[in-house]
């Protein structure tokens, strides 16, 4: 074997190892496996009582029976319905609000400035207020969701409108697009990439606010299941719910929003 050939084989092997390590799916799988194994070991060592640290297998069991024999699926669907309702409301309010503050300087100076302050309030802080105003009801949860989720949309729309290149607007105006026509045919489509990112953020906020709200409100939902788990000292249910929240969050964000976002960025021509 020539030196050159040996060298090439070494390089090929190194490349293979590299691509193996760089395979994202593999990285994640190994990470979670290691995590589960450590968890299993820690739990079976018996340092912590079972009701504080169930093993991953027990949690999986709870989840499995929760779906086939209890109402986990119903709870998830209920939560989804609630968050979707709040989210849609929030997005409408947010887009309208964003367009208004982008258009009128005085609104930006007043409402626009307060939005940033409002955004710094965690959703849990609104719970007492919502409960007093709306009672222990779904309306209270919706209130919190809308209040949290409309802000990223509003701020995103404002930024989107402000960053439309002046030439785009001018070209459109010279070609006869005015007032409403200009909004529908140019301003709105121009902000879509920014809007998608904001909608994604709004969704994350809505989801957080929903769980915060549901913890305090009667009915069926993921938040209520969490709270029920706590009051029954059923840690495996608590953990099941946390895992379900994480999975749902990942699926909607990464698979749904990220996919749309990438597609839009490609069409609009700013894919990185």
């Amino acid at each position: 074997m020539s030196e050159d050939f040996k060298k090439r084989i070494t390089v090929a092997q190194a490349d293979y190892t590299k691509s193996f390590i760089q395979n994202v799916f593999l990285q994640r799988t190994i990470f979670f496996l290691v995590f589960l194994i450590l968890w299993q070991i820690l739990s079976s060592l018996g340092i912590y009582p079972k009701f504080l640290l169930p093993s991953p297998i027990e949690v999986l069991e709870t989840m499995f029976f929760g779906f086939i024999e209890s109402d986990y699926l119903f709870a998830i669907l209920e939560s989804f319905r609630r968050v979707l309702l709040g989210y849609i409301l929030a997005v409408f309010v947010g887009i309208f609000c964003g367009l208004a503050i982008a258009r009128y300087k005085i609104l930006d100076n007043t409402i626009g400035a307060s939005l940033t302050a409002l955004q710094s309030i965690p959703s849990v802080a609104w719970v007492p207020l919502a409960l007093l105003w709306f009672g222990i009801s779904e309306a209270a949860v919706l209130f919190i969701v809308v209040l949290e989720a409309f802000i990223p949309s509003a701020l995103g729309v404002r930024t989107g409108v402000h960053t439309i290149p002046k030439e785009i607007i001018r070209a459109a105006q010279a070609l006869g697009a005015r007032s409403i026509d200009l909004y529908i045919r140019v301003i709105f489509p121009s902000i879509i990439p920014q809007l998608i990112s904001s909608l994604r953020l709004s969704w994350a906020f809505a989801w957080r606010a929903l769980i915060a709200g549901e913890l305090f409100v009667n009915g069926v939902g993921i938040g209520q299941k969490l709270e029920l788990g706590r009051s029954l000292a059923d840690m495996s249910q608590v953990m099941s719910m946390i895992i379900i929240i994480a999975i749902l969050g990942y699926v909607t964000d990464d698979l749904f929003f990220r996919t749309i976002e990438k597609k839009v960025q490609k069409i609009w021509g700013f894919n990185k």
């Binding site: 001018r170 070209a171 069409i267």
Partner: peptide, 12 residues
């Protein structure tokens, strides 16, 4: 009508 250096086309 206008033509700009940065094209100002509508990407959508």
């Amino acid at each position: 009508t206008l033509v700009f250096q940065e094209y100002a086309l509508f990407p959508w």
